[in-house]
């Protein structure tokens, strides 16, 4: 059974504030989902597991787009700007 304190910790880790009611609802819902998906823990891993499709897909660096092509469009979408800079709150405490 997932604990209420674990839900609170997940909220902090994932940067989502949770109301008290919501914590109660998530304990119940997430517990029922975890009980279902928890079946993988007991599933046997017989035979070969290597059906990997991994291949190298990186290209050489090069062919950049023209500098500044997207700047205005992207800066316009920022919640807070100063000139062409993204404006954020102070990160380090003074």
């Amino acid at each position: 059974m997932i604990e209420r304190s674990e839900i609170e910790k997940l909220g902090i880790l994932s940067r989502i504030a949770l109301s008290e009611e919501e914590k109660d609802a998530f304990v119940k819902e997430i517990d029922s989902i975890l009980t279902y998906v928890g079946r993988v823990k007991d599933a046997p891993l017989s035979g070969s597991q290597s059906a990997s499709m991994v291949s190298d897909v990186f290209r050489e660096d090069g062919e950049p787009h023209e500098t500044g092509l997207f700047t205005e469009r992207i800066v316009t979408g920022m919640p807070s700007r100063e000139g062409n800079y993204l404006k954020v709150k102070k990160i380090l405490p003074s």
Binding site: I2, L10, G11, S14, F26, E29, I30, L34
Partner: peptide, 11 residues
Amino acid sequence: VRRRILLGTYV
């Protein structure tokens, strides 16, 4: 969306 983010953070 919040539920799935929490679940994903858990696993």
